[in-house]
């Protein structure tokens, strides 16, 4: 294992994970313009759903993965339908929506801990039995390879959906001005509900992949969300390409940063980068 190829691989993998979270987060932010703090918990919902369906119900792993993704999407959709939409109808400010999302996140995190305990769990049967691949002297696991491919496929699919479909046009119209979009006949609430479903499903899938890679715990979503939000802000919040750019920049800076600094500085590097961007380029690398 050579250090430089390994660090590059680690950076790319970290970037891919942050990309998946940032894609879902940015997709929802683009349409709603508020920081949905409950977004991270979708990763835990996806991961725990697969844990439940495979280990308790005994379903086939692939069926469980599909159900896990669908459940995360449905929970996201439900959050919009039963919490955010009523608040939006009452003209609640973004701050109110943010606080509501914080409450939803805390409640769902507690519910997962009650149902499954706070103990760390793995989705794989036998830990340490993953297939390993060597690329230019660096080692990558089978799950990490799937994470990389998934990030690329999901990003490409989102771009196609946004720019080549009627639904994407509607999303972009809402993103530009929700009121005008409604006036021209777009069912904004229906579109936003679908956006919540898709964005949450993407993060649910991310949680499942992380569950296979390292494991799951009820609080896993918060740290993921923080990194996803940092990636979104430094890349350009609400911008799909910006989120991807920010995610990889963050992944590389974190991993190369701790090459020369101690590992304990990893999170500090991420937040220092965020502060630098907030001061000098608050709209991110790609201005929308």
């Amino acid at each position: 294992m050579d250090i430089l190829p390994q660090l590059i691989l680690n950076s790319i993998i970290a970037g891919a994970i942050y990309t998946l979270v940032a894609l879902g987060f940015n997709f929802i932010y683009g349409a709603t313009k508020f920081f949905n703090l409950a977004h991270g918990i979708m990763a835990a919902i996806g991961g725990y759903a697969v844990f439940y369906f495979t280990k308790t119900v005994g379903l086939n792993m692939y069926v469980a993965i599909i159900l896990g993704i669908a459940l995360a999407g449905l929970v996201g959709f439900g959050l919009d339908k039963f919490i955010y939409l009523p608040l939006r109808k009452r003209k609640a400010s973004n701050m109110v929506l943010l606080v509501a999302s914080l409450g939803a996140m805390t409640a769902m995190q507690a519910l997962i801990a009650i149902l499954f305990s706070s103990r760390f769990k793995t989705l794989t049967e036998n830990v340490g039995t993953q297939k390993l691949f060597t690329i230019f002297g660096g080692i990558i696991t089978q799950t990490q390879l799937i994470i990389l491919l998934s990030a690329a496929v999901i990003m490409a699919s989102l771009v196609v959906m946004l720019y080549k479909t009627q639904f994407g046009k509607s999303v972009r119209a809402i993103s530009d001005d929700e009121e005008v979009a409604r006036i021209v006949g777009i069912h904004t609430n229906k579109i936003i509900g679908t956006v919540f479903f898709i964005g949450s499903a993407i993060t649910g899938f991310t949680g499942i992949l992380i569950g296979f890679d390292v494991g799951i715990e009820p609080t896993m979503g918060l740290n993921l969300l923080l990194k996803g939000v940092i990636a979104s802000i430094i890349g350009g919040v609400g911008n799909i390409y910006g989120g991807v750019l920010g995610a990889f920049l963050l992944g590389f800076l974190e991993n190369f940063g701790i090459w020369k600094l101690s590992g304990e500085w990893k999170d500090a590097i991420a937040f220092a980068l965020l502060i630098v961007f907030l001061i000098f380029r608050p709209r991110g690398i790609i201005n929308k």
């Binding site: 970290a14 390292v214 590992g263």
Partner: peptide, 17 residues
């Protein structure tokens, strides 16, 4: 050294090579 809550140790492991 690493912070509690960390789940990605691959880069610090590479440093010990």
């Amino acid at each position: 050294m690493f912070n509690f809550g960390e789940t990605d140790f691959r880069s610090i492991i590479a440093k010990t090579k």
